[in-house]
Amino acid sequence: MTATSAVTSMGPLAHWRERNQSRFENWRRGFYRFRQSTLSLVGLGITLFIFLVAVTGPLWVPYPEDAAGAVHVKERFQPPTLAHPFGTDELGRDIFTLVVIGARVSLAVGVIVLLSAVTIGVLLGAIAGFFGGLVNEVIMRLTDIFLTVPSLILAIAVAAALGPSVLNMMLAISLVWWPGYCRLVQAEVASRKQDLYVQAARAAGASQRRIIFTHILPNITSPIIVKASLDMGFAILTAAALGFVGVGARPPTPEWGLMFSAARSYVPQYWWYPIFPGLALFLTVFGFNLLGDGLRDVLDPRAKR
C-alpha cells in the first residue's frame, strides 16, 4: 500500500521529528509567552537555583558534619565571617550549611505533599465529577468537611497526634491539602464531560476509563499545574510552621522552621541566626509564587488578573 511506504520510508529520526513537530511548536509558543514577563523568568530562575542548591548541596557545603548533628561548643554564636558566611548557632554549627541542607528537607516536603495531595484530589475529584449523583454528594460533602476546618490547625492536630517527625508532618499536610484539588478537578471534570469531543468519544463506544484518561484529564492539566506551582510555596511555609511549633521535623534535622524557632530566644543579639533561614524561606515561597503566576499566564491565559 502506498500509504504504508510513505510512513516507513523516512529514517527513525526524521519520523520522530515529524511526529512531534506540532508539539514543539506549541512549546515554543508557550515559552515565548512565558518570556514576555520578566517576573516569571525571575521566578523560574529562583526556583531552578533552589532546586540546584538542594540537589548538589551535600557535595560542596563547607561543614557537612554539622548537618548531621555535630557540635562545636567553642565556636558558638560566631557572627558571619568568611569561614562561616551566615555565622554559627548555639551549638557552633555552620548556619550556611544548615540552610543549604534545609532546602532539601523543605523541597522534599513540598514535592511529596503536592504529589500525594494532587493524586488523592484528582482521583476523588474525577470520580465525583464524572459519575455525579450520590457518589458526587458523598465525596464532595467529605471535601467540604475538610475545608471547613482551618487547615493549619488540622495539620497541627494530625501531626501532634502522629508524633513529630518529617514523615508524619508530610502525612499531616497532605491530608489537609487534597480537598482544594478535589474541588478544582470535580468542577473541571463535570464541565468537560459535557464537551462535544467527549460526546464524540462516547458515541464511538469508548470505555469510561478511556474517556476519563485520554479525553478529560489531559484537558484539565493546566489548572492543576498552575494551582500546584502556586501551592508549592505555601506547602513549604506550612511545613516550616509545623516545625516552628514543634510538631514537625525534630532536631538535629536542619529544617528552616525549626531553626527559626530555636533562634527566637537569641535575638536581637545573634540576629544572623533567624535571619538566614527566614530569608531562605522567603526566597523559596517568593520564587514559587512568581513561577506559578507565570505558568498561569502561559497555560490559562483567560485567568489573568
Partner: peptide, 19 residues
C-alpha cells in the same frame, strides 16, 4: 455502534484539542 457514526455541528468543539 461501529455501524452508526455521527458528525457533529461544531467542528471546533468536537475534536479533542490535546490529541
Amino acid at each position: 455502534r461501529a455501524d452508526m457514526q455521527i458528525v457533529f455541528q461544531d467542528p471546533f468543539a468536537s475534536l479533542n484539542p490535546r490529541l
